[in-house]
Design a protein around this nucleic acid. Structure first.
Lengths: 204, 204
DNA sequence: GTCTATACTCTGATAGAC
DNA sequence: GTCTATCAGAGTATAGAC
């Protein structure tokens, strides 16, 4: 039993989820300071004092959101299998990451906004978990390169490039859609573009 | 004589520039709503009412900043020469864009924050100038591909990929530095990584 | 042109009835 | 558990002296 899991009634659970979902919506759209408790409460369908019955402060809501986020954000990278086929593993990672941009754009934007502002509420996590995971996975990539199974390239910047290219379609979605026009499906096109890009970059 | 250029004394010019520079600093770090006139005035070394003597409102300061931004932001793309060597032109564009990330990270983050929040103050510009410029340049890229001078790939997504990869180093700089550690020079490494990437992607 | 003082609004958070 | 009422502080903007 995790230490933070206090027993909660069904309605408590439900309201907490309503609040967190509303907060994700509002925070991702306006940033931490730009978001107001009034907005979050309205989206959640609760009164402001009632919201503050479930969370002690605006900061607390934001923190819960961010804490859960980084973990699920790194899952696709964790799944990259050292025993699998190198190029297939990398392309699968790209695909999973692009699917997250498509299916969870609010989460992506919340994360992006936090980093953009200097990660005031995520610094330790980034310098800890994130850094360690990248270090571990880049060793795997380096080994694949030494074995000649994929082409040589800086492994850490390779990971950066996957992040940059996939998250761009969530974080800059309005720009992407404005440039492409309404007829296009950005994520479908991105899928085949990125497959081509990483295949050409890494083919041995 | 441009219609908006009213005559200004030297000290007026100077103070306007002080304010705009301070506003760029604060807006890029905290977003529009997160920034306060107090902060901007303090960074500019002026009093708040004095700031409001030069600009009628917070909104007005932000608008002036954004208006000037998009133009200079697109300049590197405008410079891509249809008559030049295709790969060299594209790599030069990548280099210029990366230099902008290195030398003007505040501008990059201001722009990113605006798009991230749905571009409420830039929509028309993005759907106009930006869209038109990309359309024009992607025709050039398509021609180069048809002539077999670079490899085939979706030209618009190629431009997106250049934006994503170069701006990542400004917008996510804290993350990049946290992962790389203090010993690294992110922009130098990115320069050679991106040259490799686009060369392998586009070599005929 | 620049400052002090202040009006007025918005926002995060609390008190206390039900 | 949820609501109405309200407080305290921050924030944008203005008035008016100098």
């Amino acid at each position: 039993m995790p230490p933070t899991a206090r027993p909660r009634s069904r309605i408590q659970q439900r309201n907490r989820e309503l609040i967190l979902d509303a907060a994700l919506e509002v925070f991702s759209l306006h940033g931490f300071r730009g978001a107001t408790l009034d907005q979050i409460a309205e989206v959640a369908g609760l009164s402001k004092p009632n919201l503050l019955y479930y969370f002690p402060s605006k900061e607390a809501v934001h923190k819960v959101l961010l804490t859960g986020l980084l973990d699920s954000w790194l899952d696709p990278l964790r799944e990259m299998d050292p025993e699998g086929d190198p190029l297939a593993e990398i392309l699968a990672y790209v695909r999973r990451k692009l699917e997250m941009s498509r299916d969870f754009p609010r989460e992506s934007r919340l994360f992006a906004g936090e980093i953009l502002q200097g990660a005031p509420r995520m610094r330790e996590a980034i310098e800890g978990d994130l850094r360690d995971l990248v270090a571990g996975k880049s060793r795997i990539l380096s080994r694949w390169m030494e074995e000649g199974r994929i082409a040589r390239v800086d492994p850490v910047h390779l990971i950066f490039s996957i992040w940059a290219l996939t998250q761009h379609y969530a974080d800059f979605e309005v720009q992407v859609r404005a440039v492409l026009g309404p007829e296009h499906d950005p994520f479908a096109e991105a899928g085949s573009f990125l497959e081509t890009l990483f295949t050409r970059l890494l083919a041995p």
